[in-house]
């Protein structure tokens, strides 16, 4: 099963490599990883997506919690939550392709944030599935470059992952 896990950790040099090292040393999957400081600059928030059986996910969470730098951890997949990923995609926009690219961006409610006479950069935010759908909706030959942030997420409702 796919799990999206949110971690609050001390914003210390090397904290990220402890997380990354844990996954490689123990042979766990890590599909995506995003990290940035929070409103409290002494804390970083890290979101990762991993896959595994229930037993493995349980071990992953225990091992993460065991890292001294980890302050709090929440498995977002265990409750209602929202997830968003951001993508920047550069597409060819010449002659006929230009119209087509614009139309697709409109259908997906994406923004065109850079325009040259031969290309667009399109920004799209949404669930990872929506991003996948956009990529497959575009003619592969027209895609120049794709950058994805990896998903990040937050639990629904009043409670939050805070100290």
């Amino acid at each position: 099963m796919r799990h999206i896990i949110s971690i609050l950790m001390e914003n210390e040099a090397g904290a990220l490599s402890r997380v990354a090292g844990l996954f490689s040393a123990r042979g766990y999957n890590i599909e995506t990883l995003t990290v940035a400081p929070t409103e409290d600059p002494s804390l970083s928030r890290l979101t990762l997506v991993t896959r595994g059986s229930d037993d493995i996910i349980e071990q992953i969470k225990k091992q993460l919690n065991k890292l001294i730098d980890v302050v709090k951890l929440l498995d977002l997949s265990e409750g209602p939550h929202v997830e968003r990923e951001m993508m920047l995609i550069k597409v060819k926009a010449e002659k006929t392709g230009r119209e087509e690219a614009k139309r697709m961006a409109d259908i997906f409610r994406a923004n065109i944030i850079d325009v040259t006479d031969v290309s667009y950069v399109i920004e799209l935010t949404g669930s990872s599935r929506k991003l996948d759908a956009f990529i497959s909706a575009i003619d592969e030959a027209n895609i120049v470059e794709v950058v994805r942030s990896g998903p990040t997420g937050i639990a629904r409702g009043a409670k939050g992952l805070t100290l």
Partner: peptide
Amino acid sequence: IDPSSISKNVR
């Protein structure tokens, strides 16, 4: 004392 020792190899 270590939760990660519990149910690691044996349920």
